[in-house]
Structure formats: C-alpha cells, structure tokens
Simulated scan of single mutants.
Amino acid sequence: MARPKPSLRPSDPRFSCGPTKKRPGWEWGALAAAPLGRTHRGGVPKARLAEAIERTGAVLDIPSDYKVMIVPASDTGAMEGALWSLTGARPVDVFSCDEFGRRWLIDLRDELKPEGLSVHEAPYGQAPDYGRANPAHDLVFTWNATAAGVRIPDADWIAGDREGLTICDATSAAFAMDLPWDKLDVTTFSWQKCLGGEAQHGVAILSPRARQRLREHRPSWPVPRLLQWFEAGAEDAAIYAGSTINTPSLMCVEDYLDALKWAAREGGAEALIARTEANFAALAAWTESAPWIGFLAEDPSVRSTTSVTLTFTGEALAGLSEAERWSVSRRMGVLLEREEAAFDVIPHPKAPAGLRIWCGPTVDTDDVSALGPWLDWAYESALEELGIA
C-alpha cells in the first residue's frame, strides 16, 4: 500500500519548465498600466519598450558596448533571426544535446546549409564535446538544454581571441546562471522562462563583433522579414530604442517590465542566481535520499539548476520498456495535479521517462522542499495503480 499523503503542500504547485511560475506576489493589477489599444510606434508604448530594453541590460549587467533588442516569436524567433541573418560568413560548429538545440542544428543542416558545417551532438543527459570548437568558426550552442537538464558549466572552451561569432541560446539560463558576456556575441532568450513573463517575444543581446558582422555580411539565402536583423548593424539602430520588427503585445511588455522591476528589487542577476541555486540544492537533497529517482545528467558539473531533469533509477522499473516507464511519469503527473501538489512535472515528450522540475528564480525554496514527499507519494501510488510491484 502506498504511503499516506503528506500533510504539507507547496504553497504554489507550479513547477513547469515553460512558461514558468510568475514572480512571487504577482497579481493581475501588475498589468493595469499597460498602454493597450495604442500604437507601439510612439509615445508611452514605445517608451515602455525602451524601458524594457534598458532594464534588461541593467539587471543582467551587460557590458556598455553591447546592445539589447526585442524580436518576434520568443527565443525561437531570436535564435532563428541570428542564424538566418548572421551565419554564412564562416564555417559553423553547432552543438546540440536536446530537442531545442537540435532545432538549431536542423535549421543549419537542412535549411541554411552553410559551407563548412560541423555537427556535434550528444544524447539526453550528456554534454557534447565542446573541446572540438574551432575558434575560426562561428559557434552555435545552448547554454542550458531545457529538455535534457544539461548546462554548460563554464566558457573556458571558447577562445578569447576567437575569429568567429558565438551564438548562444540562453533562454533557460539568462537571469538564473552566470553568463560570461566577454565570450558571448549573440545571446538570446525569452522572458517566459526565468522571469515567468507572458510568452510572445524574444530578446537578443549583441556584442560589437556581432553588429559588425551585420554591417559587413549578407548571407546567400533569402531571409524572411521577421528574421532580418541587418538594420541592427547600425550603432544607432531604432530597434535598440524600442522600435520592433513586428507589432509587440504591450500587455506582455508590461508583464516583462513588472518581472524586471521585481528582479531589481531582489538584487539583480546575482540574487536571482542565488535563489535558483537554493532551489536546486533543496531538490538535489531530496533526490539523493530517494532510491527510485536520479539525475538524468550523471556528471554533476553539467547538471542544470533550472530545468532539473530526473530519471527513474529504482529496481521496480528496471525491466520495463520506455513506454511503460512513461506510463508511470504520466500517472504521477495526473495524481500530483489532482492533489494540486505539483503541476507540469513530467519531462519533455522526447526525453526519457522521469520528472522535470523547474527550479528557476521565481520559485520559492520552501515549495521545492515541500515537493519531495509528494513525489515519493505519487511514485508509490502510480506503481500501485498500474500494478507494478
């Protein structure tokens, strides 16, 4: 018989890896000042966009010669804008270890097909061999593989005197992990990840070298308007002052501003990283005590602290097929949601069976600590309901 239900529930059961939990204390009133029903091209709406850009740079403490812009279509639009507009001038090394990194690999391999493309892949739970990066090539990589729970531990493998550009998908890392700006030329993210903003737009941060590439290079392939960044090569480009490629949602922008203001009150990126690491430590402590679950990433140095991905390790499931193991994940998800103890903790559909729990900065550590006993209960209950000894 499964253990009894724990007496203490997380005060907020939202542990989704995207869109993620909103900042502590968020209320609908945070959007009351949104300048809805107005054009984004001038006046207060454009000022809001410019403020979002300025606050992004301030919270992330980006170098003064880097530029921030808001682009269409979340992190996907930001990364594809970078690939379509910037690559083709040099050979490209692309590194991939999960479903999202694989999307950039497919864009390059199957669509753009730049000369001299090198592909470096790793299975879920493992990191590719970054030591194979060629400093003469453009490098495309994901700092935190959201679906695989694998992150890049440091940037020592990126040459300081590199000739190529580095294009980094940082959507589950920005605001939660220390990003080495001197090693990053293009950094993209969506504010629906670590800050819990409403999904729609992407952000791209460009180094002087990236802007120079935009001034000097035009790729051989046609670039759709939504992915054209060429005007951003100019130092005084309007996009850095709040003009956008397409019409933005001013409600989403207002929500992002609210999240940025909260981040500043907390103490900026350093404080958000500390919140994330405290959450991860709480979940890791429980994981080490649970005999039926373990980290998908066996190497501690590459384990994500935001999208923490776990896999079944106990003897009870050892002889089962992956489909049968997935039935346990799905049943656990149903039980936890029914009890309002945890929402959205099953892995990405293309990942191995197990659990995936968001520990980013908008989550409270007390909720992570309260979650562990519920996961134990849900696992035992799922095995009992499914008739697994």
Rank of each mutant, 00 (worst) to 15 (best):
A2M: 06
P4F: 05
P4T: 06
L8E: 09
P10E: 03
S11T: 08
T20S: 15
T20K: 08
R23M: 12
R23Q: 12
G25P: 00
G29A: 04
L31W: 04
P35V: 13
H40T: 14
G43E: 06
V44H: 11
P45A: 08
K46P: 12
E51N: 07
I53M: 05
L60K: 02
L60R: 00
I62F: 08
P63A: 08
Y66L: 04
K67Y: 11
V68K: 00
P72D: 00
D75T: 10
G77E: 04
A82M: 06
W84G: 00
G88P: 05
R90F: 05
R90Q: 00
R90G: 01
V94R: 02
S96Y: 05
G101D: 01
R103D: 13
W104G: 06
L105V: 13
L105I: 01
E111S: 14
E111T: 15
K113F: 00
S118L: 13
V119W: 11
Y124L: 04
P128M: 07
Y130R: 13
G131F: 03
A133L: 13
A133G: 14
A133T: 04
A136S: 02
D138K: 12
L139I: 15
V140G: 09
A145W: 04
I152E: 03
I152P: 02
I158K: 01
D161V: 03
I167K: 11
C168M: 14
D169V: 09
D169A: 14
A174T: 10
A174C: 10
F175H: 03
M177H: 12
M177Y: 13
D185R: 10
K193V: 02
C194L: 03
E198T: 03
A199K: 14
V203L: 15
I205P: 00
S207N: 00
P208K: 12
A210D: 11
R211D: 06
Q212I: 06
R213Y: 04
H217V: 08
R225Q: 12
L226D: 09
Q228D: 15
W229N: 10
D236E: 15
A238H: 08
A238N: 11
I239E: 11
I239F: 15
T244E: 09
N246R: 15
P248H: 14
M251V: 08
K261N: 05
A263D: 07
G268E: 03
G268H: 03
A269P: 03
E270D: 14
E270S: 14
A271D: 09
L272C: 02
A274R: 10
E277C: 11
A281M: 01
A282E: 13
L283G: 13
A285V: 11
A290K: 01
A290D: 11
P291H: 07
P291Q: 11
P291S: 12
W292D: 13
G294R: 15
G294N: 03
A297W: 01
A297M: 06
E298N: 02
E298C: 08
S301Y: 05
V302L: 11
T309G: 01
T313R: 14
T313W: 04
E315G: 07
L317N: 06
L320C: 08
A323D: 12
A323Q: 07
R325S: 01
W326R: 15
S327Y: 10
V328L: 07
V328E: 05
V328C: 14
S329G: 10
S329L: 07
R330A: 15
A341S: 03
I346Q: 09
P349K: 04
P349E: 15
A351Q: 04
P361N: 03
T365G: 05
W374G: 13
L375A: 05
E385G: 12
